[in-house]
Design a protein around this nucleic acid. Structure first.
Length: 277
DNA sequence: AAATTGGGCAACCGCTCTCCA
DNA sequence: ATGGAGAGCGGTTGCCCAATT
């Protein structure tokens, strides 16, 4: 079928953005807000593709972006979220206020991969290298200078075993997932979609070092698209299958998958009993 | 001092997804 | 139900700069 290009590529600037271009974009969005990216460049007087403008705004010019190095807390949170979500950078970024998916992706590829390898962990599988045991390992961060009543020197394991019923452990323990009040699932998932409670095959036994647990109880600042990922029953099934390797019958909304049982904003959570949801 | 190498990051590309007519 | 348009995502590329030879 083919499709028309998002913009006329001839006469378009490419490559690094100039200060003037940045200023035009910022001024326009301050005045009119984020709107139709396709028509924005012309309206703003930019010789840029709409996609390019969106990228520049999202990844660099947005006022709420956090600049500077990643903290140890952020490192560990990214690692944990990646072990759950894989390369779903936008979802991971949704848990890190002020960080962009592109930034996290780059950081993962340049820093965290190496960090995990130095710990003897395969960054793709989160399993110990040279170990056949079927356990995911998230090493605790080095103890912070202050605090820590926890003395956890052992690797932390995410075991996949079952069948077991889910316990609301993960959401309580993983910072950044705790108060997921904006998960606005409007899914039509029914009991049938979830399957029998005995179908549960996931036993996420995760603990998190103290340094990682304090900072990210922020609301889920997701885009419409991100919300929609956990919205539909179909997405739930796909995600459940994709992320957790289960079959379609045992898929549930992402809230529940990560332990956010009884999330008031999620219809799936509201309408279901913790044990069967 | 010059050349080479490698890391970091911004930006691009191609694809999928969702919405809507 | 279908297909087009727009938005967004993830992988990849390429440039810049610092470190090393």
């Amino acid at each position: 079928m083919g499709r028309s290009p998002c913009c006329e590529k001839a006469h378009m600037n490419k490559g690094a953005w100039t200060k003037e271009e940045d200023q035009l974009l910022v001024d326009y969005i301050r005045k009119h807000g984020e709107g139709c990216w396709r028509s924005l460049p012309r309206a703003a007087g930019l010789q840029r593709c709409g996609k390019s403008c969106r990228l520049r705004w999202m990844n660099y010019l947005r006022p709420d972006l956090k600049r500077g190095n990643f903290t140890e807390d952020e490192d560990e949170l990214i690692i944990k979220l990646h072990s759950l979500l894989g390369n779903k950078w936008s979802l991971i970024a949704g848990r890190l206020p002020g960080r962009t998916d592109n930034e996290i992706k780059n950081y993962w590829n340049t820093h965290i991969k190496r960090k995990l390898l130095s710990r003897g962990i395969d960054p793709n599988t989160h399993r110990l290298i040279n170990e056949s045991a079927a356990s995911l390992v998230v090493l605790p961060p080095p103890p912070p200078p202050s605090s820590s009543s926890l003395q956890n020197d052992e690797p932390l394991h995410l075991d996949f075993a079952g069948p077991v019923k889910p316990e609301p452990v993960l959401g309580e323990e993983i910072s950044g997932i705790h108060n997921n009040n904006n998960c606005t699932s409007s899914g039509t998932t029914s009991e049938k979609d979830f399957g029998n409670e005995n179908d549960w095959v996931l036993n996420l036994e995760l603990s998190v070092g103290p340094a990682a647990t304090k900072s990210y109880h922020h609301r889920y600042e997701s885009t419409t698209r991100k919300v929609s990922v956990v919205d539909s029953a179909e997405s739930n099934r796909r995600w459940g299958s994709e992320l957790f390797g289960g079959n379609q019958s045992d898929a549930v909304c992402l809230c529940c998958r990560v332990g956010l049982f009884h999330n008031e904003s999620c219809r799936n959570c509201r309408n279901s009993d913790v044990r069967t949801h």
